[in-house]
Design a protein around this nucleic acid. Structure first.
Lengths: 246, 246
DNA sequence: CGACTCTTTGAATTTTGTCAAACTGAGTGG
DNA sequence: CCACTCAGTTTGACAAAATTCAAAGAGTCG
């Protein structure tokens, strides 16, 4: 499986994975007015506090949602891969409670809220699929909460690596035992809630333990089975259902 | 404002707070077949891995969602107050990725999924309100992620206290500067991701700093302004919009 | 009264953070 | 082509935060 190349294609594939779409729904999505844009790396797409009138579909690249605390520290609450709809919640929540930014250069599609709303009214299946997509996001948040709350730095990082590799694999963005994951250690620090220095040491630990290696923006899984066990990784929370399991 | 006493009343109030309901929707909800049950404390309602055919509306009491990790540790990912619908996600996600349990004795209402699904099809406003409720849950997860990832134990606990007090106040379950919050220190530990011993020390710290006091199952806010500042508490993520702000 | 869970306290240990500095590699402009 | 900058990575030494272990109180309930 390869990533879809058009914005509509990416959206259709994602929603079809959530709830089987009929031909009418598919056709409606095909003709959806989507404005496409190519954005550079580290570009903030939506700011905390914004009141967007459109939502985003990520076509290619790596993006993230994050919150800035009053003291200036940052928590990355989600990574977004091609096919993701990182801010559909803004369809019902007026004010953004988090920011959305690219990490690598990204291609994104913009869909206006009123268009989406009308689509949801006309096609309940599409509404259900979009809703379900946000519910899977919620499930991932819960898993991340367990990860931050219960695991020590090495297992926590290993867990993120497992998730990333699996999600990349699902969309055909992983080749063999590796995939792109162009993060700086600082960004990893913001996602895992550990200091940059400790990220560096933990990375080396995973590397020398022969589990995984993240360097030069590429994640290499050195031993999937052992990494999985080490991270106590269980895929239930991704709600893959029909998909391939690992 | 007081907590609703009937299950339908609780549901209507909650959904009306999400999207203004019309009289037809309200009437439909009034006659919804809801099975009510009174449960004891520390009773698990739904287990991780279950495939429920109905969802729950919490009428009274305190409940929580949690995940058990393979090593036996537990992470509480959410607390539920009267009016909450703690497992609506099971409407679209087949397998529960977390467990749901009472903390104090609770009255809950059960609504069958097929009934809910039909309701959503007939009344898009109800569907939107339910969807929005799950989106607010998602927003709270994001805030908790920042809390676990970025704050040290004292501010982290203070943040939870702020949220709890505010949510209790919103549903009329707080009197003056205090509210019931019948948690053991062990449960607090599972929610905040810190050890029981450290919970105890942190509780005493907040108490002697004159910020807040949790003991005997009751949360007393000693100095709301200072507590708020200490916790860096910002209510945006609750998406109160029309409601009173603090 | 025991049996029990929950809370509190002390001391030793581990984990993680902070500070400071050196090192690396990819631009950039002279 | 060479300094120069700059962001990112790596290292060491130290400090702080949090965990673990162990044991003693406190409260509740049969």
């Amino acid at each position: 499986m390869r990533s879809a190349t058009t914005a509509a294609g990416a959206l259709i594939r994602r929603l079809d994975g959530m709830a089987a779409l009929g031909n009418t729904e598919r056709a409606a999505l095909e003709t959806l007015p989507i404005e496409v844009a190519d954005l550079g790396d580290h570009h903030t797409i939506v700011h905390e506090g914004d009141q967007p009138t459109r939502s985003i579909i990520l076509v290619s690249g790596l993006a993230c949602s994050f919150k800035i605390l009053p003291d200036g520290s940052r928590q990355i609450v989600a990574f977004h891969h091609p096919g993701d709809t990182p801010d559909v919640q803004s369809l019902h929540l007026k004010v953004m409670d988090n920011s959305l930014a690219t990490i690598s250069p990204c291609r994104v599609g913009y869909v206006r809220h009123d268009v989406l709303r009308e689509l949801c009214l006309r096609y309940p299946t599409v509404a259900a699929a979009l809703w379900k997509a946000t519910l899977v996001d919620g499930s991932i948040y819960r898993e991340w909460l367990s990860n931050l709350g219960q695991r020590k730095a090495p297992a926590r990082m290993a867990h993120l690596f497992c998730e990333t590799f699996l999600r990349k694999k699902m969309i055909g963005d992983a080749s063999g035992e590796s995939c792109d994951f162009p993060l700086t250690q600082g960004e990893l620090s913001d996602a895992l809630g550990i200091s940059v220095v400790h990220v560096n040491r933990t990375l080396m630990q995973l590397r020398s333990a022969g589990l995984a290696d993240l360097s030069g923006g590429r994640l290499v899984i050195l031993d999937w089975q052992r990494l999985r066990v080490f991270a106590q990784y269980d895929t239930t929370y991704l709600h893959l259902e029909g998909s391939i399991s690992f």
